[in-house]
Simulated scan of single mutants.
Amino acid sequence: MDANPVTALKPSDVVTLPPTRHNRALQANKLKHLLVALSVAGTPLTRLAMRLLLLTSVRTVALRGATWRELNLESAIWAIPGERMKMGHPHIVPLSAQAIEVLKNVRQITQAKGADDCLFPNVRDKSRPMAATINAALVRAGFNQERLFRAHGARGTFSTWAHEEGFAPMAIERQLAHVERNRVSRAYNKAEFLPERQRMMQDWGDYLQRIDG
């Protein structure tokens, strides 16, 4: 049987990575390098996980613990329950067309059937979510040491772009699930700014698609 030459490829064989220190947000040129590097680093499922992380700006722990029960592809909504969120509040994540396409590809790979199936199952035990595979893929892609960038940096990258595009700061904060600790003055609303956030996340998906084209 002939060997597959792609399996021997390293990200450094495909792309030269520019310096990225201290887990900073990535500008367009460095983000393009990241997208290219991740196209050859890690397993296909890990690549899709990183892509979805970029497209949704959720925390890594929220992504890893997700089940299909939380997702409604028809309504383009990801509803994360409060017990899985850092601040204990439920969180609604609008899904762009690009994010929905990623999710369809994920389901095709995992062949998930049940609502309680892990979105990104562990390779050794499908009843458990994946381990810290995303950051491992980033290290393999060359994002370590002087080029330090970890999965959490995806949130800062999105936030920088959204502010530069002029979206309402409060809508950006809601998308990042940043919640004021003092809720005496008004109640928490998990769907607050949803129409603007839907537009924002679709624009973000379109932006990633353009620079990756």
Rank of each mutant, 00 (worst) to 15 (best):
M200L: 15
A191P: 02
A62K: 00
G65F: 00
P90G: 06
K10E: 13
H33V: 12
V106P: 06
E74K: 08
N135L: 07
G166D: 08
S57R: 08
E146M: 07
A115M: 11
S12W: 10
C118L: 09
K126S: 14
P129F: 04
C118Y: 04
M85E: 05
I77L: 13
G88L: 05
W204G: 05
H178F: 10
K32S: 03
V61H: 08
G213M: 10
H89K: 15
A137G: 08
M87S: 11
M50C: 13
I172K: 09
Y207R: 04
G153M: 12
L17V: 15
K104P: 01
M87E: 09
K190G: 01
L38C: 13
R155Y: 11
E70C: 00
P129C: 11
S12L: 13
T110F: 10
L31M: 09
L38I: 07
N122P: 09
L17Q: 11
N122G: 08
H163Y: 14
K113R: 14
V106Y: 01
A41M: 07
A76C: 05
E70F: 01
E83I: 10
A162D: 04
V139E: 12
D13P: 05
R197P: 12
D116P: 03
E74T: 11
R181A: 14
I109P: 02
H178Y: 08
V139H: 12
P195L: 13
L63M: 12
I80S: 01
A162C: 09
L54Q: 02
K104R: 15
A25P: 11
W161T: 09
L9E: 05
A136G: 11
